[in-house]
């Protein structure tokens, strides 16, 4: 369990570094911090003074960071420069949609990606394999906004099966509206999963332990799942950080493409309006999610591979 403890410490250190970088965004923007925070508001002495007070601009930089970080721990990132709404509230309002999109997309990608990856590996070099591989190459080469536009064109414009934009009313209708965006997200993610699963599975099927299992009559089901897939999943777990990064990027582009008011769209809007405080809040959230996923991956890895779990050495 020392392994976990060390990872926890590393994650904490990373979080602190990231927070420093995020705090620095305010000063990285062109113009003075005061000017940036002022945004498009009228610049009289009173508002300037208010801003300096509210964001401790007169304090030394380290103190400023400290005060900012203290608030950030309580998830208080200040108020949006654009709307004056607390950043946390804005994030809360938008998070649900993004989470649903992510969960829906991931579920589809997971089932399709692992399933097709295993299938392609078992039928290596066959027509099915080539088709699956081609699909995954196209998926990895298609940015989410292009996939989105093509799906919209085919399923919404040509066939009229799905709505073009909007979120829908009621649970079923919302799911309906989310289907094209989720499929778009899943297309890119599944491409990665197919790639990792297929490669892992082909490698595993080629190993001596699989041949030996067959050579002593172990049932084919047990060979495929207990021997091959079990080992093939280890590199897939390791690659899940790459998957997360791809899905986060995809989600941002998808929300813009389908005009969904999620966190991604909020980030893009805030960036466009130079709403630095909102960007800080969102970036911090993003960093935390990435670091947590990393941590989760490490724990999963621990379960997947006993060689990491135990450190006993051969006598």
């Amino acid at each position: 369990m020392i392994f976990i403890a060390r990872r926890l410490v590393a994650a904490a250190v990373l979080l602190v570094i990231m927070s420093g970088a995020v705090f620095g965004l305010l000063y990285a923007s062109p113009g003075s911090a005061e000017q940036v925070l002022l945004g498009t508001r009228v610049a009289n002495e009173e508002t300037r003074e208010n801003i300096r007070q509210r964001y401790n601009l007169d304090e030394p930089l380290t103190t400023q960071y400290w005060l900012w970080a203290k608030d950030a721990v309580r998830l208080d990132f200040g108020e949006s420069i654009r709307t004056g709404e607390p950043v946390l509230n804005a994030i809360k309002d938008r998070a649900q949609l993004s989470l649903r999109l992510g969960a829906y997309g991931f579920a589809v990608a997971f089932v399709a990606g692992i399933g097709l990856g295993v299938l392609a590996a078992m039928r290596n070099r066959s027509g099915i394999d080539r088709a699956v591989v081609s699909l995954s190459v196209v998926g990895a080469s298609s940015p989410a906004f292009v996939t989105g536009v093509f799906l919209l064109y085919v399923f919404a414009v040509l066939l009229g099966w799905f709505p073009v934009f909007g979120q829908g009313e009621g649970a079923m209708d919302q799911l309906w509206h989310l289907t094209l965006p989720a499929l778009t997200l899943a297309f890119g993610a599944a491409a990665l999963l197919i790639r990792f699963t297929r490669a892992g599975m082909i490698t595993a099927l080629d190993q001596d332990y699989v041949t030996f299992a067959r050579a002593r009559g172990v049932s084919e089901g047990r060979v495929l799942f207990g021997y091959a897939l079990r080992n093939a999943m280890i590199p897939v777990v390791t690659a899940s950080t790459v998957l997360l990064a791809a899905m986060l990027t995809g989600a941002v582009l998808i929300e813009v493409t389908f005009a969904l008011p999620g966190l991604g769209a909020l980030l893009v809007d805030s960036v466009a309006f130079k709403d630095v405080l909102m960007v800080q809040g969102l970036t911090m959230l993003l960093a935390a999610v990435a670091i947590l996923t990393n941590l989760l991956t490490d724990v999963l890895y621990l379960f997947a591979d006993p060689r990491i779990r135990y450190t006993r050495v051969a006598p």
Binding site: Q207, D208, F212, R230, N231, P306
Partner: peptide, 11 residues
């Protein structure tokens, strides 16, 4: 088979 280091399922 020949190689005891690869013949058994490592997990």
């Amino acid at each position: 088979l020949q190689d005891p280091f690869t013949m058994l399922n490592p997990v």
